[in-house]
Design a binder for these strands. Structure first.
Lengths: 223, 223
DNA sequence: CATGCTAATAGTGTATACAATTTCACTATG
DNA sequence: CATAGTGAAATTGTATACACTATTAGCATG
């Protein structure tokens, strides 16, 4: 018998598609969404669309205004900073917890990802960077074994994901980030949870600054 | 012209009612909800009900299982601890930020709330305690002026609110909590953000332990 | 009695119809 | 020409009908 989870509900499918369209930048901040348009676009009725939209609203990816409509959420610089500050706290905490869980195998897997990031930075291969950077960060999250913490971090990341991608083209901090990652890895090897937490916090803070800086060139995307 | 926000949508109304029914314990963890029952209960069709339920699901207050149904979320002890740990971080951070914003007026308002808490504890007036305790904590949140931080904390609080209330009847830590609050206030007066953050973290951690302890007497509510 | 089949029931998932509201273009009026 | 008003179109909000799935009770069969 086929796995039931494979034929997911239309609602769930639509939810994921719109969510990914937003995080990947196929739907841009401020863009107006109408239920009919989405309904035609995905060839389903408005019922599952509306339910998916409610979910996306709760997660902050879209904004409703009663009887008016829906738009992809825009973030102000203030909100952006706020979200990164919270991520800094939470990701730092996740690393702190994960440190004791990390085996030598984990460290070597992380080191491997780290090397791929160095290559990606050298080649200015943004796709490879994004992919491995996501892997690097999620490794700690997952190892922490805290489901709710994970969900929160992922949710917050989604809200800034597009902005982060946008800014990366202008970003000259690859080397800095690699330095941070190296420092985090080093702290993990030494099983120094305090240090690892501090380094991760610092890392996310730096990311925040870089993004705010580079987005000032693209003000139209910001609120 | 009447304020438009007054005649909110049915969906929003239902959302708030179910949410409050859960946080206030009129709907208990593990309780099964059917759309028809809710539909009859509130005399509206299933459409707004389902949308409200999606919202509640995103916030973790209820759990869906495809083609099966809905139930009010249960928390395991592990999850409970996890949520309190996150709250400890976030509320500590909120206090840290708010410290510089607090005027003398704010301090005196907080002191006033603090006094009411002392009275409530002396009289074993749980209602008064809950109310003023909520005021005390929200004061810092609000003063921090971070919208997203606020929302997160409130969301996390809702998920544990009922358990916290349950446990309070068995709780003998009023005096301890009052001591914590006093310490937090003291740190705020001294404008010592670091200290205030540490105290608040400690306070939430203590709450966590008290709740886990007292709920072990009511295992049936836990997962 | 145990087991497996079947039909009925209840509940969720989706589509559609209708109601209410907003928006916007067009017209009438000063 | 500016502006208020009016009505049609577009869009969201809600109700209802239908489809699909899961559960359960009852019956037949071994």
């Amino acid at each position: 018998m086929a796995d039931n989870r494979l034929d997911k509900s239309i609602r769930q499918d639509i939810y994921e598609r719109i969510r990914d369209d937003i995080t990947c930048g196929r739907l841009l901040p401020g863009e107006r969404l109408t239920e009919n348009k989405l309904s035609n676009m995905y060839n389903v009725s408005r019922s599952p669309i509306r339910e998916a939209l409610r979910q996306l609203e709760s997660e902050g990816l879209i904004s409703f205004e009663r009887n008016k409509g829906i738009e992809v959420s825009k973030l102000s610089v203030k909100q952006m900073k706020e979200i990164y500050d919270i991520r800094s706290l939470l990701e730092g905490y996740a690393v702190r917890i994960s440190v004791e869980q990390l085996t030598k195998k984990d460290i070597s897997a992380l080191t491997n990802i780290h090397k791929k990031l160095i290559t990606a930075a050298r080649d200015k291969n943004i796709q490879a960077w994004l992919q491995n950077n996501a892997l690097f960060h999620s490794y700690f999250r997952d190892k922490a074994g805290k489901e709710n913490l994970c969900q929160l971090i992922v949710m917050l990341k989604r809200r800034t994901y597009h902005y982060q991608n946008m800014s990366l083209s202008y970003d000259r901090y690859f080397e800095t980030y690699i330095g941070h990652h190296a420092a985090i890895l080093e702290a993990c090897k030494k099983k120094d949870a305090d240090l690892a937490e501090r380094q991760m916090r610092q890392h996310v803070q730096t990311t925040k600054c870089a993004i705010v800086e580079s987005l000032s060139m693209n003000r139209n995307l910001l609120m």
